[in-house]
């Protein structure tokens, strides 16, 4: 039972990071029909911004981390939108998909060539201690690291903050209006262009936070974006491609399932189970767990 709870907590911790990436993915899709095949690389890259900040500019870790978030908002948000997405928008979905596949290769190989091909250790924000007592000392055998709890708290707080922002602030509601129906939003006086830009900024920030949280666990490596991107993609579709709430649920679900499968069923097929879930969802409930039926022609 203790094992089970530990696995659930570990699953929630990684799941919360997946949720961050999946939410960003969904936001981009909602407001600008961008299927971002480079989302995994977006989560890989900011850790290297922080590492480069520490290595080349001697910044202390917390400042490097903040710099990484800001730099991500600039490059993965503003630059991505203006240089990659905007010129391709009128061309339709497919060329943009291809361009983001190209971008993924560019970011991956760029990090490999200009930083390192080796996996990099990455500092954690949280102390390296275990909460709970080990069975050997007569305790309950319950074992959870502060790292996992910290990750879970930070990621959940980020998601709650974003949800509050989208639901309760004027800008957030304008962003939702833009996502649902840009034409009507524009008629009602919403600055659609600016709202779309905000989405890209938020995606950049979410990717950076996810990156800073996941890199201490799985190390920072140029190729880690492949799995991360797949997971974000699966989480977004499982939850409902057009719902931020869905992406959150999808992220947590994929994280938990991933951990339970690895522990109880098979490590060699752990990747397959979220995908099996994905296929089942598509066949049985195409709008996703929490999604509403898509109203636009996609």
């Amino acid at each position: 039972m203790n094992d089970f709870i530990q696995l659930i907590i570990a699953g929630l911790a990684t799941g919360s990071i997946y949720a961050l990436a999946a939410v960003g993915f969904t936001l981009l899709w909602q407001t600008s029909q961008t299927i971002n095949f480079a989302q995994g690389e977006f989560v890989m890259l900011p850790a290297f911004f922080a590492l480069a900040g520490m290595k080349f500019f001697g910044l202390p870790f917390p400042i490097a981390a903040i710099a990484a978030i800001l730099l991500s908002m600039l490059t993965l948000g503003v630059l991505f939108k203006t240089v990659v997405v905007d010129p391709l928008h009128k061309q339709g979905t497919l060329p943009l998909v291809i361009s983001t596949i190209g971008l993924a290769i560019l970011l991956r190989e760029g990090v490999k060539e200009f930083y390192s091909a080796e996996a990099q250790r990455f500092p954690s924000f949280f102390p390296n201690i275990n909460i709970g007592t080990s069975a050997a000392n007569g305790g309950s055998g319950f074992n959870v690291s502060a790292d996992q709890i910290g990750v879970l708290i930070v990621a959940t707080a980020t998601i709650l903050l974003l949800s509050w922002f989208l639901a309760s602030t004027k800008t957030g509601r304008q962003m939702q209006a833009t996502a649902q129906n840009p034409t009507v939003a524009r008629i009602l006086g919403v600055n659609v262009e600016r709202m779309v830009m905000y989405t890209f900024l938020i995606n950049g920030a979410l990717a950076a936070i996810a990156s800073l949280l996941i890199s201490p666990i799985y190390l920072a490596k140029f190729s880690s974006g492949e799995t991360l991107g797949l997971v974000a993609f699966v989480a977004a579709i499982v939850g409902g491609f057009n719902q931020v709430r869905g992406a959150i649920v999808g992220g947590f679900l994929v994280g938990i399932i991933d951990n339970l499968v690895a522990a109880y069923i098979s490590t060699s097929y752990r990747q397959a189970v979220p995908l099996a879930l994905l296929v089942m969802i598509i066949l049985l409930r195409p709008q996703g767990l929490l999604g509403r039926a898509e109203e636009r022609a996609v």
């Binding site: 391709l88 109203e295 636009r296 022609a297």
Partner: peptide
């Protein structure tokens, strides 16, 4: 030649106004 057909129009306004019959 148009890529992916008119239903794939990348412009969000165009996409929103084409009501999906294909769905």
């Amino acid at each position: 030649p148009s890529l992916g057909g008119p239903n794939l129009g990348g412009d969000p306004t165009a996409a929103a106004t084409t009501v999906a019959g294909a769905n």
